[in-house]
Design a protein around this nucleic acid. Sequence first.
RNA 1: GCCCUCUUGGCGGAACUGGUAGACGCAACGGACUUAAAAUCCGUUGUUCGAAAGGACGUGCCGGUUCGAGUCCGGCAGAGGGCACCA
Length: 859
Amino acid sequence: MSRYNAREVEPKWQKVWENAQAFRTRNDSPKPKYYVLEMFPYPSGKIHIGHGRNYVMGDVVARFKRAMGFNVLHPMGWDAFGLPAENAAMEQKIDPAKWTYANIATMKAQLKVLGLSLDWSREFATCDPGYYKHQQKLFLDFYRLGLAHRKESYVNWDPIDHTVLANEQVIDGRGWRSGAEVEQRKLTQWFFRVSDMAEELLSALDDLPRWPEKVRTMQRNWIGKSEGANVMFALTNSPIPSLEIFTTRPDTLFGASFCAVAADHPLAQAIAKNNADAAAFIAECKHLGTSAAEIEKAEKKGFDTGARAKHPFIAGRDLPVYIANFVLMEYGLGAIFGCPAHDQRDLDFARQYQLPIRPVVIPSSEKADEFMVGTEAYVGDGRLENSDFLNGLSVDDAKRSIIDRLEKMGIGKRTITYRLRDWGVSRQRFWGCPIPMIHCGKCGVVPVPEKDLPVKLPTDATFDQPGNALDHHPTWKHVDCPQCKGKARRETDTMDTFVDSAWYFARFADPTAEAPVNREAVDYWLPVDQYIGGIEHAILHLLYARWFTRAMKLGGYTKASEPFAGLFTQGMITHETYKDPDGKSLFPEEVEKRDGVAIKRGTNVAVTIGATEKMSKSLKNVVPPEVIADSYGVDAARWFLMSDSPPERDSEWSEAGIEGAWRYVQRVWRTVNEAAETLPALGAPMPAKFNPSATALRQATHRTIAAVTSDLEQFRFNKGVARLYEFAKAIESFEPATADDHWALREALESWIMLISPMMPHLAEEAWQLLGSKTLVVDAAWPKADPDLTRQDTVTIAIQIDGKRRAEIEMPKDSAAKAVETAVLDVDAVRKAIDGRKIKKVIIVPNRIANVVMEQSGV
RNA sequence: GCCCUCUUGGCGGAACUGGUAGACGCAACGGACUUAAAAUCCGUUGUUCGAAAGGACGUGCCGGUUCGAGUCCGGCAGAGGGCACCA
């Protein structure tokens, strides 16, 4: 018998599927719809098997749902705008479009090797004018609806390269190319009004039960709803008479020892006008860049403005007013009061500037006059002390009470604040979707007329200087004003690439639509039933897509509010890293292992095995799918990717693992081959009776069907794979003697092939054919488990004495508790363990466990 | 710094809603088949005490709740993801 030859078999079936247009999806099917989508890739160059896991997972779901009778949409496209293309343009003098489309061609070929059940007829790239034209139309609609507007905000500015930097291009506060200290610079930019929908985006999370709880928690925290109060402080020695602050802890007002404002707060700006030191400090704050992580990690610093804030309740207590580097203008009012005893940042700040620390919330276990705050602020609940009319109240009661009082006095009010900010979509870059706006000296900001869309990127831009090539282009931005026909200037900012990915899933419903979406198609397909992607997108991409879908709804494009009904976040694929003696990284294919020692292939040079890390180009620990396809076949790779690790966790790619999978491929092939000739004809009628061993096989078959079906429904691919290993054993150890036995064997084999088919589709087709079928597995229905054969009649009940397992007993399923107790107490080992002691009680958990609890003998 | 998650044998992991910890796979070891190798098949494999029967310990660490905790609660440690211009 010949071996299974994946290298021949796999391309053969891929061709068959393609010729049959097996995965082409209709928008008008009578079947129920199921939309499965993996986050589309950025065409960075090549995919590795780590990307493969994401697509294979989606493919398993797609094939499984198809067999279950759904009209499945499983499309693929390219998130094609982004920084790497521009970097390549600068470094290699290659046109970003050429670079991008070349990468797409390479990666598409690689994806095809994986044998994915994709409807390639719906493919598009976000850098196609045919796609971004519609994005520009949506932008104009959002502008008309007041969802897009302009305002000032800060960017990272490189003063040497005269260019705006992304956060990842700022390294230790310096520009990655120039090394210059980065400054914050104010620009007028386009924003989407995301914060207006904060409450809706927050409350609707409760209606997404098929999202991981942790992602919903992260989004909730990101939106960051907090209830608190705005409080007005009267100022002395200040250019402005009063300061309004926001606090979530008004209850700690009596413990206040300072106020602080952000560097760009009007008070700070006003003081800096006549105070060079203040201006210098503000300038220093601006050198931190715009990244929140940088700002928060930096040492807490402040500048005493000399202004004093009057405490609203304590006569004579004047609080110093600082400009502080940890207060953000974007959150609340850009001004706070500090209570060091009950807030960690305030405490760090107070220690540095020797400000008083006054505890006002005392933990219930402590005495008010003894309670001290050391290096950690006390942020828990307790009772209020040293707080006049709040004394004795809990934190919550104190908040209510003091806000009521502040409101009555007219110097404060109850406020709800969200951390969520508007979405800044302007990017000072070439390789993105042009913002379809025109700036006219007379008419101001004028939208590009719809008939002039798309505003296309020029094809002759040059990248010999840093900065926005669109802005540098000699002619592109010069245009006549659509209103007054006078000379005007195009907007040279392009859109954030998160905009591209905020609606691509809707375009897949009908990528040929004249409008951004085909209303009928999008209403049929949305929401996506199962979205699959990395946890790294848990907040931004998913939140933006949720907002964008609502904005499209307001524009009349869809009835859906939520884009993704089900979400699964998969873990990453990791691999060992290798370094040669010079410390240079090596690709896995450059390394061979001899007697457990790693050596550079074809040499005697020793290789150091480094940490196991997420597969990435920079570490070179990547395995390309076509290499695996050539050696083990893509089915083995798909099987391995779905086995072992639970899909939400990281998983290590190893040579041993793929070999194990490959052995299973051979095993399936051999078993089907050996049995094929003895089997009854396809579709032979079921015998009326089976002997016990055939019945046992049939039970294994139907139990496996039931288990694997539920495992796949629940994304527990690794468990499904484990059950299919067990089932293989059951089939192999079965020795058919009669014709009826062979019927049971055929049933087992057919079921087996169907159950492995989502994971190993090529092998399944080949084996299916071997069993005599003239139709394709991709057109076959998923097997159904017969409840009569999955039922369990007896159960094993574990017996514990005082919670420790001592014996077990077989009982009929659902035996009465009394009967179980009697049987348990009659077991020899139990009697011996009891040893004449007194039984306190017997706990019976039906079908599971019996625990005999003894009286404690006095010690 | 802040938010979120994870931690179970030599390794990846299983254990349904608090009810027999270690399914299944990998690796290792022993054996069968073979002139030999490959392939395949069978067996053993958490640690420890014991000749065995059997016992003790054991799910990152410390503590708690419970008849019973990998699972729930509090604290600690380590690893990972995100922090708004990487995608």
